[in-house]
Amino acid sequence: MRVSTASSEPCVATTERPPAATHAREHRASPARLTVAHVGYLAPSTNFDGIVHSVFTHACNVAGPSGLLTIAAHAGADGPTVWRLASDPPDLRRLFHRGERLHRRYAAATVGDVVLDLSKAAAWHAGRWPPRASRAMADNLGVARAALKRRRRGCPSVIDRDAAPWLRSLAEACRVCDVARATAEIDRLVGKGEGLTPAGDDAIVGFLAAIGALAGSDAEQVGFVRALSAAVAARAARTTDISAHYLRLAAGGHFNADVTRLVHALMGGESRDGAALPAIGATADSPLHLALEAALNVGATSGADMVAGMIAGFRASRPANA
């Protein structure tokens, strides 16, 4: 799941509503107004109508003309199909309800009596993958593995149990560009695991990001990534609606900011969304640690599963451009 739902995240009540209004819809005296800070590059750019598909504490998914659009609290991540708010409303479930209609008209969108102001929104673009991996990547992957191990304590995942051999086999298939074997493992992984985005799907997203970033101009690797991506897209219907959306995006080479930042951090380059990343270090506030923490905190186990997939992908890829 590429939207944060962890209840431990800090939530700041900055919803721009009149002070007298309560958060409960039934008691709301006047419309709530939320400012959208960033609009993802694949979000619909013209007027459209959508329908609220699902609502979480910090994210609301809207079924639009070309798939899901996520309205995410500011604490969440930017993404290709994300409208990231300028504020952190305490609980989006009090503002949006599934089945409600969203109408986007020019610089504003309405959902019930909530108005989303798009007039000040900046476009969010992921940018390009780093041209090559730095020599520090191996060390960075070690740091990531240690962080993942810590995270897994008391919070196990099917990726570490039943699905572990499949992920290993996927990595081995990737190493030799064996599309048939890799596709067989994708068959097993898609939709595997508990939760709103099954662990197998999260791992696939991380894996695709890693192998896509490292493929560079290696024709064989690029061909393999394309074939594997097509296989993932063709199997997306086998999982939940939300997870399927992220699988399709990943198959198209599109990832949320928490994924792209971690790719850049692990490869030792600049962040994909433009924020400069200094050299990799092991201090708690280093870009790698910040990127890891942000990724691992996504969902209950989803972020960790994505990181597991990404590590497997980086280890599997031939570092020809390293």
């Binding site: 799941m1 962890a6 329908i51 699902s54 979480f56 998914n61 079924a63 899901l68 599934r98 939760g195």
Partner: peptide, 10 residues
Amino acid sequence: GGGDAAAFRL
């Protein structure tokens, strides 16, 4: 906590 929702079927 924050990770639950009944989804509208697409």
